[in-house]
């Protein structure tokens, strides 16, 4: 997994709330193989019109934000469908982090596994940062430090929190499957006790095979 320690980059404001994963990447793009990349599909129906031309009003079509790597957005970002392609699209486009007051839980987890940092800050702090990066006079550079759990924007420092294992995986670039496989003995020991206690939960083959199946 891609490591995340500190990132200093331009930020783009997208203050709308409830940007769900269907808006981040419409369902019709999900059949594309992962290896072909999803960056061009990001926010597709908002960024492009029906003829595929860029909508000039969209923040990512403005020169100032063209090379943004941090997105600052409204509450409940990434709600809805569990499609991990929402994270792929953001990451493939070039984003490293997204800052919002709240996130859909599944999106939040998907992001962390992909070396992409979701930063939760109180709504008023997010509004303040949106103000700074939207202002023509302001500098739209943000610095995020995952080690120290701080975000710096507009000369101010904001503290955020992210817990435990997934932070460690991000900081060290660890693969979660490899990590879990170091616990294989514990999983197997648990499983033996679990199926002794609840024998109906195990392998269902025998029951199933005695039934008429289609």
């Amino acid at each position: 997994m891609r490591q995340f320690v500190t990132v200093t980059a331009k930020a783009a404001p997208m203050p709308a709330a409830n940007i769900d994963t269907d808006q981040i990447i419409p369902a019709r793009f999900l059949r594309r193989p992962r290896k072909e990349g999803y960056g061009d599909c990001l926010f597709y129906d908002a960024r492009f019109d029906e003829a595929g031309r860029e909508r000039p009003g969209h923040v990512l079509n403005q020169e100032r934000y063209a090379d943004a790597q941090i997105l600052v957005t409204g509450r409940n970002f990434g709600s809805g469908s569990s499609r991990e392609a929402a994270v792929y699209a953001l990451a493939d486009y070039g984003f490293r982090a997204v800052v919002a007051p709240s996130f859909g839980d599944i999106f939040f987890n998907n992001a962390l596994i992909n070396g992409f940092l979701p930063v939760r800050l109180p709504e008023e702090e997010v509004s303040e940062i949106v103000g700074v990066i939207s202002s023509d006079a302001g500098d739209n550079t943000i610095r995020i430090d995952l080690e120290k759990l701080i975000l710096e924007a507009g000369g101010k420092t904001y503290r955020f929190h992210i817990d435990g294992l997934k932070r460690r995986c991000l900081l060290e670039g660890l693969d979660d499957i490899a990590l879990t496989r170091t616990h294989t003995d514990e999983i197997e020991a648990f499983e033996r006790r679990h199926f002794e206690r609840m024998p109906w939960l195990g392998d269902r083959r025998r029951t199933a095979e005695s039934q008429d199946r289609g």
Partner: peptide, 22 residues
């Protein structure tokens, strides 16, 4: 509960999943 593709791979490979208590 619903999970993303990386977690699907994790469950297929390990039959377990990391979660924080909701």
């Amino acid at each position: 509960f619903g999970i993303g593709a990386s977690e699907v791979a994790h469950v297929l490979a390990t039959q377990a999943i990391w979660q924080r208590t909701p």
